[in-house]
């Protein structure tokens, strides 16, 4: 036996950047995450060539899944050409040879920050959500050890109290994005800072969702056909953003989540947040073949 038997031929980096041992750890934790939906699984979270907080958790999950035939879409705030999305997509391609795509229908893996695409995801697609803070209890309990105990005890009373206080004070729930939701009737998770508009898309969905926080070293999952219920009182129902009647000033499409663009004259216009859906709508209007898939919302209403 020699020292050489302990190692292997030198390579600048492994396929998919992460080395085999990092991938195995992620695989083990991803399986546990599927087995206990919505429960945060701690993982080592290796450093990757991107700053923490910039999608390193999602990146590690995606890198573990990637193979040369993968087709990967990356969005930030719904947009494929957002600077950080472009940077992540380029990196994924460079380290794996996977094909880059902007089209939700074409993608096998969709890594996203803050949005779920408007087109329904299929049962062969994986959504990887980047998570800045995986702990839904943090606003009521910053100490992670205490929060973990609260999850173990299914002790979510303080979260409910916060929602109740908001209703008393403001007449409505004031939680914007990252709406805490009960998964499989047991664990409350944060769906990552997606708007309330997107949370119903995770409930009893056909696709598999991984949520991964690299900096905080936690990952969790929502398997297909799993209940995801936003915390709400029976007499104050869950409300998504009031965007159902807004129209995109660029594509003319109505009934989806919009970006509001302030104008110099004091008014505002709107544009589709799901930027590639907008591109396809424009192309179709111009007579090009640009298939648009079934959408979760129709005429501004969510259809289960």
């Amino acid at each position: 036996m020699s020292l050489a038997t302990l190692t292997k031929p030198w390579a600048a980096f492994s396929y998919g950047f992460l080395d085999a041992s990092a991938k195995r750890e992620l695989r083990r934790k991803m399986l546990k995450a599927i087995a206990v939906p919505g429960c945060q699984m701690p993982y080592a979270s290796r450093e990757v060539p991107m700053a923490r907080g910039w999608g390193t958790g999602g990146l590690q999950v995606t890198l573990t899944l990637l193979k040369p035939t993968s087709r990967v879409k990356v969005i930030d705030q719904g947009a494929d050409d957002s600077v950080n999305a472009a940077s992540i997509r380029k990196f994924l391609h460079r380290v794996s040879g996977a094909t880059e795509t902007w089209d939700t229908l074409d993608a096998t893996i969709i890594q996203s920050r803050h949005r779920v695409p408007e087109e329904r995801l299929r049962d062969d697609q994986i959504l990887v959500l980047q998570v800045p803070n995986p702990e839904p209890l943090r606003p009521v309990e910053p100490n992670m050890s205490t929060a973990r105990q609260m999850h173990a005890d299914a002790d979510y009373g303080r979260l409910w109290l916060v929602l109740y206080e908001q209703i008393v004070r403001s007449g409505r729930v004031m939680q914007g994005a990252a709406y805490p939701s009960l998964v499989n009737g047991r664990h409350v998770m944060t769906p990552s800072p997606i708007p309330r508009w997107d949370v119903p898309k995770l409930n009893m969905a056909r696709h598999l969702t991984f949520l991964s926080a690299g900096r905080e070293k936690r990952l969790y999952a929502v398997p297909p056909f799993t209940r995801v219920e936003p915390l709400a009182f029976s007499d104050v129902p869950y409300k998504v953003e009031d965007h159902g009647n807004l129209t995109c000033s660029r594509s003319g499409v109505t009934g989806f989540f919009m970006n509001e663009i302030p104008q110099e004259d004091g008014s505002a216009v709107h544009e589709l947040s799901d930027s590639h859906l907008g591109i396809k709508a424009i192309r179709r209007a111009e007579g090009e073949a640009a298939p648009i898939g079934a959408t979760w919302y129709q005429n501004g209403e969510f259809r289960a």
Partner: peptide
């Protein structure tokens, strides 16, 4: 990084 989706969501609740 842009946070305009979360901001939009908060704005909706505020309005």
């Amino acid at each position: 990084l842009p946070h305009y989706v979360t901001f939009q969501s908060a704005l909706d609740a505020l309005r």
